[in-house]
Amino acid sequence: MREIRYFEALNEALAEEMRRDPDVFLMGEDIGLFGGTFRVTEHLLAEFGAKRVRDTPIAEAGIVGLAIGAAMGGLRPVPELMTMNFAIVAMDQIINHAAKLRYMFGGQLRLPITLRAAGGGGTQKGAQHSHSIESWFVNSPGIRVVIPSTPSDAKGLLKTSIRSDDVVLFIEHEMLYSTKGAVPDGEHLVPLGVADVKRRGSDVTIVAWSKMVHEALRAADALAVEGIEAEVLDPRTLDPFDWEALHESVARTRRCVVAEEGWRTVGVGAEIAARLQERFFYELDAPVQRVGAVDVPTPYAKGLEQAALPHADDIVRAVLKITT
């Protein structure tokens, strides 16, 4: 299988879906002439023209609002918010409108919107540009949350998201764009709500998504040296969540560590840990552990930033705590 980079996989997905459906169009800041700040929309303006690859003002709430209206009008918008940090500017349109209108109107509407944005920190961009806030959206019914960790998942999930008739928040990761991975040739779709086992193991289940999948795989390599076989489960979508796959894995390993880049307090990991103890309290061999960012705004200085964000060694420590 050919190997391509994460941003190239996303670019392929956009181009393929735009060729397939003339109602699919892109809008966002610097996505046209500039080619996207993370190169995801490179060359698309040349192929599809300014009608379907629309450079916008820096007006995130407006961008999301326009996408909602365009979807009401029968189109299939794929707006880009550049980063999750700027999604915060658009929260009213995302949460109060995109995620609620269909329900409030008794199902009269379909809103096929795929809202793309890059999340995550680790590149010294400071507190306002390092957010991993997927938990905010998982906490709000009415919006799907898709968060791929590999080029293959990125491509397959983006294509499925665009074809979905629902509002999808598609969270990429700034530090994954240049990572390479095998991506199948031809039509490649990954369904929403289906987790993927990134590594098989029998001693502990590590649940991780986005960049933390790679930290978890590094942790699993280190643990293997110690004779501990970790399973790495990537849910790939946080809403819908593949609880069945998680239950199946934890029923075998009887131990679980959740690793997320977002802050630990009231994070997605907290929900996963809560659900696991509700279901497996008597089967678990140890309490579910959570790895996440330290609860401080992300600092600039490299050393401080790295201390704030979770890494493979934090996962190793969490696993060792419940396996030895």
């Binding site: 709430a61 407006g62 209206g69 365009a70 009401m72 189109l75 349109q93």
Partner: peptide, 13 residues
């Protein structure tokens, strides 16, 4: 802004 998006759909089509 949703109204403007509806208008965009009209123009697009």
């Amino acid at each position: 802004p949703i109204a403007v998006g509806l208008a965009l759909a009209c123009q697009y089509r």
